[in-house]
Every structure is written in structure tokens, then in C-alpha cells.
């Protein structure tokens, strides 16, 4: 169960898709890191993820974790963005039988879930057909 502070720390990524670009090898890390996963360099410049991509693989979750209980069934995919970065996210506004490997998608700002009727509402990104 996340806490508000844990989610708040990720707002630049979840709200604005902010990523880090390695100053040495140019690899983009999302979320940004302290150590480049490709070359080990420690200096980065700020960048943003590309808005569009295509589905690499996907599934339909029918047995959800409890905070997503009301949303099931829902589709989750690994999307390869046009800048090469791969991101996991739900695919919504798309009939399940229309989702396939290679489907063109784009980011959209959506509500992820809330902690019951009285808790914080967590927002983030999902994918919709482009």
C-alpha cells in the first residue's frame, strides 16, 4: 500500500514523463537514475519520454491485486516508445480484441486508483490507441 509521500516523489515521472539522458552514452532512463544502466556514467541531463509508441506484448489481468479490484479485467502492455524506451502501462479505451502486438498507442493522463472512499487519489499515465 503506497503512502502519499511515495507517490508524490514520482509525480515528475507520472505526470510529466520526466526521464534522464546519460551525458556520456545518450541512453534514456525512466525513471531517472544515479548510475547509467548502460555505461555506468553518473551525469545526466533532463529529458522527457516520447508521447507515442507501439505495443510489444500485452495481457488482460482478470485476477487483480485488491486496489484494482473494481477495474478488472484490464489490459496491461509493455510499450516501446518511439525513442526506444520501454514502459509498462495499462491500455484503455480499446476493446480487448483490438489490442495486438504492434498496436500504435499514446500516453493519456488517467486516475490509477484511490485508497478507498477517504484516501488519496493516485494519478498517472495509461495508454490509449493512437
Amino acid at each position: 500500500m503506497p503512502t502519499p509521500s511515495r507517490a508524490w516523489r514520482e509525480f515528475p515521472q507520472r505526470y510529466r514523463l520526466e526521464a534522464g539522458k546519460c551525458k556520456k552514452c545518450g541512453a534514456v532512463s525512466f525513471p531517472p537514475r544515479l548510475v547509467c544502466p548502460v555505461c555506468g556514467w553518473r551525469e545526466f541531463s533532463k529529458t522527457k519520454l516520447a508521447e507515442n509508441g507501439k505495443v510489444l506484448t500485452y495481457t488482460i489481468i482478470r485476477v487483480p491485486p485488491h486496489q484494482f479490484a473494481d477495474q478488472a479485467p484490464y489490459a496491461v502492455a509493455i510499450v516501446e516508445l518511439s525513442d526506444g524506451v520501454k514502459v509498462t502501462g495499462q491500455v484503455v479505451d480499446c476493446d480487448f480484441d483490438k489490442i495486438k502486438i504492434g498496436l500504435r498507442v499514446k500516453f493519456e493522463f488517467r486516475k490509477m486508483y484511490s485508497e478507498g472512499e477517504a484516501g488519496v487519489i493516485y494519478y498517472g499515465y495509461k495508454f490509449v490507441p493512437a
Partner: peptide
């Protein structure tokens, strides 16, 4: 948790992606 779990993925889901 922040980049897979947050999006509603489960273990069967991850292996289903594979």
C-alpha cells in the same frame, strides 16, 4: 512497485507478457 505494480500488473500478468 512504482513502475510495474503501480500499473496493476500481477505475477501471472508479467509471465503472460512473456
Amino acid at each position: 512497485q512504482e513502475y510495474e505494480g503501480f500499473h496493476g500488473i500481477t505475477f501471472p500478468g508479467l509471465y503472460a507478457l512473456i
